[in-house]
């Protein structure tokens, strides 16, 4: 009985530890995406004319670009953290089964974010809007292929 209790406790600690790490990384990458979304909504609020703090467009474009460029795909999307793992995530298994395509999609988004920075440096609102739209399309391509649809 004593041995069974010890084994059960050890197993539950191990399982908790493993799942805890996976949950943490899922929360972590969700926060990265939230940060990206927040930078976009700050830029968009200026473009829509909701606020008039245009000096924020360039720093937030830079922050957005750096947030995407810094993503280490292997560490941020480790094996066993798809939506089939029983964890709360919308990451589809195709991220791991077609990692090359996922890397390429992220690379394209990062390039478009860089183009947004260049447009923001130019200061022309129309160009910034177009660059943001182009970035959006790459976000859409990635979400449609690699993220489970929201209900």
């Amino acid at each position: 009985m004593k041995y069974i209790t010890i084994i059960s406790l050890t197993l539950s600690i191990l399982i908790n530890n493993v799942f805890g790490q996976e949950e943490d990384i899922i929360k972590y990458r969700k926060n990265i995406m939230k940060a990206v979304g927040n930078h976009i909504s700050i830029i968009a609020a200026n473009l829509k004319g909701k606020v008039d703090i245009n000096s924020d467009i360039l720093p937030h474009s830079n922050a957005l670009y750096l947030s995407l460029a810094a993503i280490d795909i292997d560490k941020t999307f480790p094996e066993g953290t798809s939506n089939t793992s029983g964890l709360k995530t919308k990451s589809l298994p195709i991220i791991w089964s077609d990692k090359k395509a996922f890397r390429e999609s992220m690379k394209v988004s990062t390039e478009k974010a860089k183009a947004l920075v260049i447009a923001a440096e130019g200061g022309n609102r129309q160009d910034i809007g177009k660059a943001l739209g182009a970035l959006g399309k790459t976000c859409g391509n990635c979400h449609n292929k690699f993220r489970e649809k929201k209900n």
Partner: peptide, 24 residues
Amino acid sequence: ENDIVFFLQTGFKPDGDYVEGHMT
């Protein structure tokens, strides 16, 4: 109104998330 116009031009929702599915 601005949120809807911007969404239908660029696909970005007010929270910065991007549209998904057929609407893309």
